[in-house]
Amino acid sequence: MTDLVKENILLNAVTSAFKIEGKVIRDRRVEVHADKNTVSSILLFAKKQLGYIHMNHMTCIDWIEQGEFELVYTIYHPVDKLTLFVKTRIDREIPVMENIDTIWDHANTYEREMREMFGIEFPGLVGEHDFILEDWDQIPPMRKEFDTHKYAAETFYTRPGREDAKDVREELSKRSGTVVPDFAKKYSRE
């Protein structure tokens, strides 16, 4: 835990080969940040040259405020027991990412899910479009701007008989005749 020798060797191997940034997060965890065009070369390099033959996971995070999707590829070395994260960011407006299911077959499932849930296109990706959501006509639902509350309110009816519910804070300020100013309301109980 103290020296992180293997971790640093891995970090150097990847960062120097591709001239990219990265860091050792903790023991057994190393991350590198890559441009979206070099991701597949890094993954292939890690798989063929370094022995990262297992892909654990692939995820997408919607950073709506930065206007980006972050893709994280989690790959694993079964002998060294190291995990390498390859992270990249793609433009949220033009969400296109290289298809890597030729490197790992099961990446196909992740990519199909991301296509449905985030609307990311993977050119050349083969497979059912309706993998999870059948007949979905709204924006990809895992995007941050998709409001589940609103969707539920529009799609389903609420159970009758619960209209008499009161808000404790409102009830108390009504009773004491005070008004919480608007700028303070964001600090009231949700």
């Binding site: 404790v168 804070r169 108390l172 300020s173 009773r175 004491s176 005070t178 009231s188 109980r189």
Partner: peptide, 8 residues
């Protein structure tokens, strides 16, 4: 816990 009992 933000209940607001104190305000009254």
């Amino acid at each position: 816990i933000s209940c607001g009992l104190c305000t009254e």
